[in-house]
Simulated assay, not measured.
Amino acid sequence: MLRKPFFIKLLHWEYWSFNTVYGPIIPIWLVLCARARSFFFFSASNPTIMNGGFLMESKKQIYDLLPEGFYPRTLFFALPAKGECVVNAVRTAGLKYPLIAKPDVGGRGRGVRKVNNEEELVGYSQESALDFLVQEYVPFANEVGIFYVRMPGESKGRITGIVSKEFLAVTGDGVHSMRELVMQEKRFILQLPALEIMFGSRLNEVLQAGEKRELVPYGNHARGAKFLDHSHLADDALLNAMDELCRQIEGFHYGRLDIRFESWDLMKQGKSYSVIELNGAGAEPTHMYDPKHSLFFAWKEIIRHWYILFRISRRNHKKGIPYMSFSEGRRMFRENSEFEKKIARLYV
């Protein structure tokens, strides 16, 4: 019974809905709004990112802010996008398979797909109902989310949290099918409907003993990745590397960088890593989702980061960066609500 999805979600707060987790602490958010005299003060946190990176921001526009060489080579395609045109653009750019395709606006890993050849890329182009990106697949085995903040006018920032990610993968024993292996791990059981769509009958394959198969190559909590709090690894060398990068991102002061990297030592030297996502004001301190942490720890981390966001936004506002108007904010939330309904229907 405890392996049924309902009970798995009920007994592990990390799977609770946004409203359930955030609802009890909303009064604190409202206090910050009152102090800022704006419900949408967060828009001033990262003035070069649409809406401060809180909602509805374009991934392509964010990549354009990053210095070349620090993120995967990326192509943008607006709808309607013919499959043959997408394939030709990829050929011309010299991108090699496998590639990652994903919506330009999105979240929770929805619509992200690894495409292994031209046929799969054409299929993604035909199925996509949103403007999308095609980018190089970063082959580094490790993925981490580094939460970085820097007060406006200061050259030195801080790392306020680090989350390491274990992808959804199974290891064969020569006896059980991949489906049966998935059913042995509660975290994976929740992903079974999506895995059935992705793999179909291939889930019945029996892997050889010791053979590891990565089923979801994305470090996303909603796609089955396990998040581990490795904030203790935030030393001076890592901060120096992040400072070196983030000072080059105009107007970026608050958010989480999701990074694929070869090794900690090389990343601390500013080598062999790639920023696959940059999340702004709407970024969560995802290290809180480590299964060892309680809901009370999560509330503490959320509130701590809200206060940092408030301080950064207020300082930028005092320097002349306007807050989003009430009508603009309402429109942003309305558009996001409509978008969430649409993307939930369209993508696994």
Rank of each mutant, 00 (worst) to 15 (best):
F296G: 09
Q208W: 04
F333G: 11
G23A: 10
I25P: 08
S43R: 04
N279Y: 10
D290L: 05
L2G: 10
S155W: 10
K82H: 14
K102H: 02
L233Y: 12
F6V: 08
L32Q: 04
V21Y: 00
S17H: 07
I100M: 11
M288H: 09
F167Y: 14
N117S: 10
Y124C: 01
L168H: 03
E180G: 15
E301C: 10
I159H: 06
K96E: 14
H221P: 02
Y289I: 03
G94Y: 14
I259M: 00
S325H: 05
Y97T: 01
K60L: 05
L278C: 07
T286R: 07
G282W: 04
V115A: 09
Q61I: 13
L11A: 11
R256I: 01
G157T: 12
K318M: 09
L75A: 07
L10H: 12
A225C: 08
G94S: 06
I49N: 05
K342C: 07
D235G: 10
V112M: 08
L203V: 04
I8N: 11
F18M: 08
A234K: 02
F252Y: 02
C85N: 15
L203G: 08
R223T: 01
S125A: 14
R256G: 00
I162G: 02
Y254P: 00
L66D: 00
M267S: 12
E180W: 02
G123D: 11
G123H: 09
M56P: 05
I189H: 10
P98T: 03
F326Y: 12
L295V: 15
E250S: 11
C85D: 15
D235E: 05
A234S: 08
V31K: 05
F40W: 13
H176L: 06
F132E: 00
G329K: 04
K271S: 12
Q191I: 01
G23K: 12
S272I: 07
S17Q: 14
D64C: 14
V112P: 08
A81H: 03
P139T: 10
A241L: 01
A194I: 12
S155L: 15
A129W: 11
D131T: 00
E340P: 00
E205G: 05
F167I: 09
M56Q: 06
I259N: 01
R202G: 09
L66N: 04
H305C: 13
R3H: 09
E284Y: 01
N316R: 04
H317F: 03
K319T: 05
K300H: 13
C85I: 15
L55V: 14
V134W: 05
N316T: 03
D229Q: 02
H230N: 15
Y15S: 06
Y63F: 13
K212M: 14
P193Y: 11
I146P: 03
N204S: 15
G282L: 04
V86P: 04
L30V: 11
I146E: 04
S231F: 10
S274A: 09
T92Y: 15
K186T: 01
E120S: 03
